[in-house]
Design a protein around this nucleic acid. Structure first.
Length: 281
DNA sequence: AATGGGACCTGCGCGC
DNA sequence: TGCGCGCAGGTCCCAT
């Protein structure tokens, strides 16, 4: 399912393909996936130029602008995507056809198209102005790979959440942004920290390890274009290559790569969580 | 403040 | 073969 590395992969690919392109028309086949009425949504997106593509947390953001006759930007909108569990953003040239789960189609004026697919229909697209976008983005904690996210910053944030279990906390988007069920488990394994450890019981050395591991895991996952569990594919329909490198996620009942003990799976904070009881204390 | 449960969806794998 | 069931997970909302 798409977490930061998957959305980042999509963003990087889209930057190369659609920035500067104009949206000629938009088709919406499932009204509940967009925040406005279909007519309004189309009105706000068709005719706009894609000025940029960004990512924040697990959100994909298209900066839209309309160029007036005097070639001044008259209106600025932002199209925000959340892929949730099964959303896909597909770059379709002329030969790739929509499928059952293709609910939104952007027809670009160069003849190419972008599909938004979502087999479970949990994902959404919201057209918002700059002010609403800012409000939306302010709800998130820091980006793990941002240079402002220092070890001291991480420690400060942890001080406010002493009673939390560490693994669900890492998935809390208001705490830090972009980490979901896969990479929180991987970071805990990498740091040798049991996912149910309370923040207040973590010693400095463990916090340091968690900090380094969070970054390492995310950097590596981006490098391998994410993990294709569930429906995730990149803009070209290609699977991410990180799954074979996952150490605990999805490995319940298998042997720990480090100590050969059996990986356990347990519900923690309502989410399936795999870990090695021997390596993670 | 933190946790637990349900809701939203649909495809898949399991057991019979 | 086919059916029904439970499960999966990101996020929000409500309750304890």
């Amino acid at each position: 399912m798409p977490e930061m590395p998957e959305v980042e992969t999509i963003k990087r690919q889209l930057v190369k393909k659609i920035v500067g392109k104009k949206i000629k028309s938009v088709e919406v086949k499932e009204a509940k996936l967009v925040n406005l009425g279909i007519r309004e949504f189309k009105k706000g997106t068709a005719g706009m130029v894609i000025k940029g593509v960004l990512r924040r947390a697990k959100l994909l953001i298209w900066k839209l602008g309309k160029v007036s006759k005097k070639s001044k930007i008259s209106k600025n909108w932002n199209l925000v995507f959340h892929l949730k569990l099964t959303g896909q953003v597909i770059w379709a040239g002329e030969s790739i056809q929509p499928e059952k789960s293709t609910y939104i189609i952007f027809n670009l004026s160069d003849g190419n198209r972008i599909f938004f697919n979502d087999q479970r229909k949990f994902g959404w697209l919201k057209l918002v102005d700059n002010k609403d976008l800012e409000k939306m983005l302010n709800e998130f904690g820091p980006e793990v790979l941002d240079k402002s996210f220092t070890l001291d910053k991480f420690k400060d944030l942890l001080k406010k959440r002493k009673k939390s279990k560490i693994k669900p906390l890492l998935m809390d988007q208001g705490f830090i942004a972009g980490v979901g069920n896969i990479y929180s488990q991987e970071a805990c394994f990498c740091a040798g920290v049991h996912p149910e450890r309370k923040v207040k019981d973590l010693v400095d050395k463990e916090i340091g390890k968690l900090y380094n591991c969070l970054k390492k895991v995310l950097i590596d996952a981006v490098k391998f274009k994410g993990s294709s569990v569930d429906a995730y594919v990149d803009v070209y329909g290609q699977k991410g290559k990180f799954v074979p490198r996952l150490k605990v996620y999805g490995r319940g009942g298998l042997k720990c790569y480090k100590c050969r003990a059996e990986i356990r799976t347990k519900k923690i904070g309502g989410r399936g969580t795999s870990f090695c009881e021997k390596c993670q204390r």
